[in-house]
Design a protein around this nucleic acid. Structure first.
Length: 288
DNA sequence: CTTGGGTCCTGTGCGC
DNA sequence: TGCGCACAGGACCCAA
């Protein structure tokens, strides 16, 4: 799924199509994604005007005029597409059959008063949606345990050193733990550790201090660069505007098993290991 | 409390 | 060409 840069990119694509406009029709086509849709989902959204779209970690927060928030998590394969009503352009070059009936796995289709249509598609259904009542954000179970936004001042070497104090888990796992810092996923953790020269296997508590002062800027830099590129596009993943992010061409670590390390003056070779069931890519030569 | 592993689901790419 | 397996951007839930 999408990690923070992809979710940010999706938000930026949705805003021009949705903010300030009323949702004229909401079509929920199945009872559940990863979790059941909340009771009254369609009725709560239909007829409401969207006032803003925010992002918190990997969550999309669509603000409605009545104070409710439509929360969306994309899971691994969730995606939004924006198209004109009726015709609904896909942005998926090469195959656009079946548009009148919708693509396979189109689970939620929203029409706006502009005539535009916003479609949520999710093949694996690891994504989910929920409704947060007015003033309910501080107590929302989805958001309450999240760590700081990695691009905010709240995420800094002191804070992160504190957060990983005494943690025996590998630094790779610590960076994926949304309670310590919220928004990173498998790709950008690999990239940040490569940039910081830290092995994904290193025990988290040994990163506190000196190494944290390298790691924190590496995290911020890679996320900033990825957002600027519109995120990473895997397979036919498209952002809300229908355009392709291109940061996958800038990966230095992820999916580069057997390839030469790209760090200047390093003659290492990238390897792949499995940690907690997930692939880690790193250079054993300079990542220690 | 922390930590590791299994699990949900569908699609794709690879080796045979 | 078909088949079976490994693997895929996440994170919850439970056992130890």
């Amino acid at each position: 799924m999408p990690e923070l840069p992809e979710v940010e990119t999706v938000c930026r694509g949705l805003r021009p199509a949705m903010v300030g406009l009323r949702l004229t029709r909401v079509d929920q086509r199945r009872a559940d994604l990863r979790f059941p849709f909340p009771a009254g989902f369609q009725d709560r959204l239909e007829g409401r005007r969207v006032t803003a779209i925010d992002r918190r970690a990997k969550y999309i927060l669509i603000r409605l005029e009545d104070g409710w928030t439509w929360l969306v998590h994309l899971g691994m394969s969730g995606r939004f597409t924006v198209g004109p009503g009726g015709i609904a352009s896909s942005g998926q070059a090469g195959h656009n059959s079946g548009w009148a009936l919708g693509e396979k796995h189109d689970h939620v289709v929203v029409e706006l008063e502009s005539g535009a249509r916003v479609t949520y598609n999710d093949a694996r259904r690891f994504g989910y949606m929920d409704l947060i009542p007015p003033n309910g954000e501080a107590t929302s179970s989805h958001l309450i345990n999240l760590g700081p936004e990695p691009l905010s001042e709240a995420f800094n070497a002191d804070q992160f050193s504190q957060a990983i104090q005494g943690k025996r888990t590998p630094i790779k796992s610590a960076l994926l733990d949304q309670r310590l810092v919220a928004g990173l996923g498998n790709i950008y953790v690999c990239e940040a550790l490569w940039r910081a020269g830290i092995s994904p296997k290193r025990s988290a508590h040994t990163v506190a201090g000196r190494r944290a002062t390298r790691l924190v800027p590496a995290v911020k830099d890679v996320l900033t660069a990825a957002i600027a590129a519109g995120g990473s596009s895997l397979r036919d993943y498209v952002q809300a505007t229908g355009e392709l992010g291109y940061f996958q061409h800038s990966w230095d670590a992820y999916d580069r098993e057997g390839d030469p390390c790209r760090r200047p003056d390093c003659d290492g070779q990238m390897v792949r290991i499995v940690q907690s069931g997930r692939s880690s890519y790193y250079c054993p030569r300079h990542q220690r």
